[in-house]
Amino acid sequence: MTTLLSDQLLANIGRQSAPQRELVTRRDIRKYAIATGNRQRRYLDGDQAPPMFHVALFWDVVELEELTPDGVSIDKLLPKFPLERAMAGGLKIDYLQPVYPGDWLTATRTLTNIYEKHGRSGPLIFYELDMQIVNDAGEPVIREQTTRILR
């Protein structure tokens, strides 16, 4: 069976992003809680960050010219894959410590795996990303593992 995955492509496994350090603010928590339709007072008031607030906190803030015409920012951690149509993916999030306004959190992302499967409609490429989020004491706060599928 031929493979879409060259050695050069597979050499990207283990590639890591520069750590990104961000400040959790009450205002950003409130915006996130309101936009997601959260109904719990401690989140709506910004006293604590709800689950998945880290998705907003660590979304890439890119400049206008870095966006593609369809408004997407290119993930620089990823190599160019021979398949490009994104299919459903999944993720797993471990919540290890609560997050409060005033916390500084640092996220580091790693491309942990690239592999191929052959589905009924043709080849599929899977890749896995691991995001580790720690506080300023270096303690783990959140871990997120994402699997994405390309066809």
Partner: peptide, 16 residues
């Protein structure tokens, strides 16, 4: 409105 606010909070400009 909710979808707009959600993506604004993320800084997600995907046109879809």
């Amino acid at each position: 409105v909710q979808l707009f606010l959600y993506n604004a909070v993320l800084w997600n400009a995907h046109r879809i």
